[in-house]
């Protein structure tokens, strides 16, 4: 049905060998023909990013997903560096920078803290959406449509069944994606 992969999942995790949630999510989407899964730290362990290759990957995708755990209210550092070197003027924005126009963008993130820690009276003091705004704005600045994120919170001791269900939901979320159509938002 799909001639070529149209979903690009960019991924980073500093300790994937200890991860449960992201491991399960990766396993759940492996083998999906329309998904290109791209582990940034595995490809660029020393942060020397092949810019042309990354830009080519982005051009080919219609739906771009950042999959990662939330570290310090954001993405693992290589995502930031990736933004700095790949989303350049003339490619992602500015004059002639239209490569990402009209694409869709979403986050698939997990947090260690439970949802109620991300409230005015919780230790993180702000809702998670607040911390995700730089990504929302990045998408907007590059002319992409920002879709509601797929979130799993409380990763430190979630039961296996919940993690497995989340992984299945992730797979479904990607499978349900239709070009030009917003995929359903999920938040646990």
């Amino acid at each position: 049905m799909f001639a070529s992969p149209d979903i690009l999942v960019l991924f980073a995790h500093l300790a994937i060998h200890r991860s449960k949630i992201n491991r399960a999510m990766i396993d759940a989407i492996s083998g999906l023909e329309r998904v290109v899964f791209h582990d940034l730290l595995e490809t660029y362990p020393d942060f020397y990013i092949d810019i042309e290759r990354e830009q080519a990957l982005l051009r080919r995708a219609a739906f771009i997903v950042f999959q990662h755990p939330i570290y310090w209210y954001g993405a693992p550092a290589i995502f930031k560096h990736w933004q700095d070197v790949v989303l350049t003027r003339g490619f992602a924005y500015g004059e002639g920078g239209t490569a990402l126009q009209g694409k869709q963008f979403a986050l698939a993130v997990s947090t260690g803290g439970l949802p109620d820690t991300y409230r005015a009276d919780g230790i993180h003091r702000y809702p998670l959406e607040v911390f995700l705004r730089p990504f929302e704005q990045m998408a907007h600045f590059c002319g992409m449509r920002y879709l509601p994120p797929l979130v799993l919170q409380g990763g430190h001791d979630l039961p296996e069944a919940v993690i497995a269900a989340h992984a299945r939901r992730f797979r479904q979320w990607l499978e349900d994606y239709r070009p030009g159509k917003a995929t359903g938002a999920h938040k646990e």
Partner: peptide
């Protein structure tokens, strides 16, 4: 050959006092 990325400004450092790393 380095990035000529003068777009969305310099990043603000995240300070995370009294938080458990999420």
């Amino acid at each position: 050959w380095q990035t000529s990325n003068d777009g969305p400004g310099r990043p603000e450092p995240v300070t995370g006092r009294d938080t458990d790393a999420p």
